[in-house]
Amino acid sequence: MIELQAICKTFKVSKRNAGFKEALTAMLTKEYDYIKALDNVSFKINDGEMVGYIGPNGAGKSSTIKIMCGILSPESGSCVINGRVPWKDRIKHVNEIGVVFGQRSQLWWDVPVVDSFELLRDIYKIDEKVYKGNFEKLVTLLHIEEIIRTPARQLSLGQRMRCEIAASLLHSPRILFLDEPTIGLDAVSKIAVRSFIEKLNKEEKTTVILTTHDMQDIEALTKRIILIGKGKILLDGDLEALKRRYKGQKKITVEYASGSLYLSDGLSLVNSLQGRAVIAVDTNVISVSDAIAAISKNLEVTDISVAGATAEEMVVSLYEEYHI
């Protein structure tokens, strides 16, 4: 179980200025900015949960992850994971977690992936039988049997990411931190990774904390999201409940041959190109059928479709709402 309470963290960053004069004065004095990266962050995650941790860049996501991994220690507040304080009991704590940093690799670059795996086996002191079992299972589920003997540098991004995920699970961690795991992956790889993570969470009851900008990941995998902005937790709740809140927003896409667009109350234009318009409908003001009637009044409609708010749009409006 992960429990954070009132975590605070401030960073000191030195200022760098552009321009010739500023560069010379910088030789003599130094200025600092104080950035409050985390402001009273608290949440609780139970075993087996899968949580999406979202927020714009610089919101404090990676700082929180680092604290939970035990790499960073906060100024104040408490963090207890599985009965331990991560940065105080580093080696024992780290034995039970797996981390995948989307941008950086943990595999050795020039040797076959399987060699990296064996090194990890020795680092984590994994029992031979357990290792073999995990190895077989992970290799099969992630479809990496054929690339396991290739050096990491020769793999495509999708292949490498699957190997990274396998590498992080060899020691059967109870908690898995995934930082941007699907970034840069093609559609097929994304789906493969997502279904694997889902299975992992369901069958192994591994707690998964997923930070990502890809809202489709969130939608596909998580039931609960935590939104962080400017160091503060702004939202912590059920994804479905949030979507219902935005259920009132619908989108009508209409294609037309000729005519003019009439927008009554509750309708607003999102964008329009020649012959194609996307209109946002606030169903609290006007019903969908009335909206369709209003739009088609002066329009020769050739095609029309109605869609609910996607997670992406919901998040954008959330960001706007909280001014982040």
Binding site: K66, G70, K92, N95, I97, F101, R104, Q106, I123
Partner: peptide, 14 residues
């Protein structure tokens, strides 16, 4: 500077 040390810290070894 390239974050490898953070990776080292996430491993259960000295």
């Amino acid at each position: 500077s390239n974050g490898v040390f953070d990776r080292i810290m996430v491993r259960p070894r000295n």
